[in-house]
């Protein structure tokens, strides 16, 4: 039985390994086509591109493992990015830390709205966040039009803020460092704290979670708030990195995030998956995007390739599950037969 347990866990660790292999393959192919793809600058860019989406994917993972989802992340990101711009328009010397905290707070408030509707009003997350996707984006546009701000540009922001987005430490981009720090904290928390394990329990069997006395509503609400806060941070970092903000920042981002999470092996019906997997999923998808033009594939194929990666990932999950189920059935059958004789 212990060998079986090892194999079961092996299957889960196998997912991260699978992504790493796919990454190596994509990077390898791109490097053969253009050797500079794997240069220090190339790697720097790959990680930089993946950082914000990985940050969002970590937050999304917290929700997906509880059988929830947040489709409003793109809109929340747009809103918080726009908030950063507004703060600098107001006062170009606004301290960076204040902008970051304001973004996180606004994101958390948006998450709290989603969380309250899901956990207290008991509306399915898919519906709630589809609704708030439009509502938050609407607020964003309304704000832009009320203040008559079409776009905020780099020269209007403080240099310290811009260097947060573009700077690096020992060659590692700041954004990547932030994403890695968040990833480490989330991975550690999910693994080592009761609240973290309870998120898995809620997604694995909601009824059993209730019977086990887990405060499911509070946990799901908390996951929405934390995820919202991370999206808020993502919006601020987006503003700092690109230096140009308008009301449509982050449009369509939700689908990339969910794709990254699913490619990363987080079960869409909850209960299993890791934030590390989700972050690797984000890295894989953004790396594919960067590699396509290098490999001579027209850019408009990018979305199709994302979709194909998603389908491959889900098919693999399904195949692994079926094989696992078949093996468990066989093993039980064998034990029965053994017991009968």
């Amino acid at each position: 039985m212990s060998t079986q347990a090892t194999r079961t866990r092996g299957a889960f660790a196998g997912r991260e390994l699978g992504i790493v292999i796919a990454l190596v393959a994509v990077v390898g192919a791109a490097t053969i086509a253009r050797p500079s793809f794997l240069s220090a600058q190339g790697l720097h860019d790959l990680f930089l591109n993946a950082s914000i989406i990985a940050l969002l994917a970590v937050g999304q993972t917290l929700l997906v493992i509880t059988r929830n989802i947040d489709l409003s992340v793109g809109s929340v990101m747009g809103l918080t990015a726009f908030l950063s711009g507004q703060m600098f328009l107001n006062d170009k010397d606004t301290p960076v830390i204040l902008v970051v905290l304001a973004g996180i707070a606004l994101g958390a408030v948006c998450g709290a709205v989603n969380g309250a509707l899901v956990a207290i009003a008991k509306v399915p997350a898919l519906v709630v966040t589809l609704g708030t996707l439009y509502v938050f984006r609407g607020v964003d546009y309304a704000w832009a039009s009320a203040t008559d701000v079409q776009q905020v540009n780099a020269y209007q922001m403080s240099p310290e803020f811009l260097s947060l987005g573009s700077g690096s430490v020992l060659g590692v981009p700041n954004l990547t460092l932030i994403a890695l720090a968040v990833l480490a904290v989330a991975a550690y928390g999910l693994h080592n704290y009761r609240a973290g394990r309870e998120l898995y329990a809620i997604g694995s069997n909601p009824d059993a979670a209730r019977l086990a006395g887990i405060p499911s509503g509070r946990r799901v609400f908390g996951a929405f708030v934390v995820s919202g806060a991370l999206v808020g941070l993502g919006g601020v970092l987006h503003a700092a990195y690109f230096g140009t903000i308008n009301a449509s920042v982050g449009t369509g981002e939700e689908l990339s995030v969910v794709a990254a999470v699913v490619v990363g092996g987080v079960a869409i019906f909850g209960g299993s998956g890791t934030v590390v997997g989700a972050a690797l999923g984000a890295l894989l998808l953004t790396t594919v995007t960067s590699a396509l033009p290098v490999l001579g594939v027209p850019a408009f194929w990018q979305r199709a390739v994302d979709g194909a990666a998603l389908l491959v990932a889900i098919s693999l999950d399904r195949a692994v599950m079926l094989r696992l189920a078949a093996r468990l059935r066989e093993e039980r059958g064998r034990r029965r037969a053994g017991g009968a004789t």
Partner: peptide, 11 residues
């Protein structure tokens, strides 16, 4: 019995 199928026995 209501287990969490994705989690370990100890959990």
């Amino acid at each position: 019995p209501s287990q969490f199928p994705d989690l370990t026995v100890a959990e």
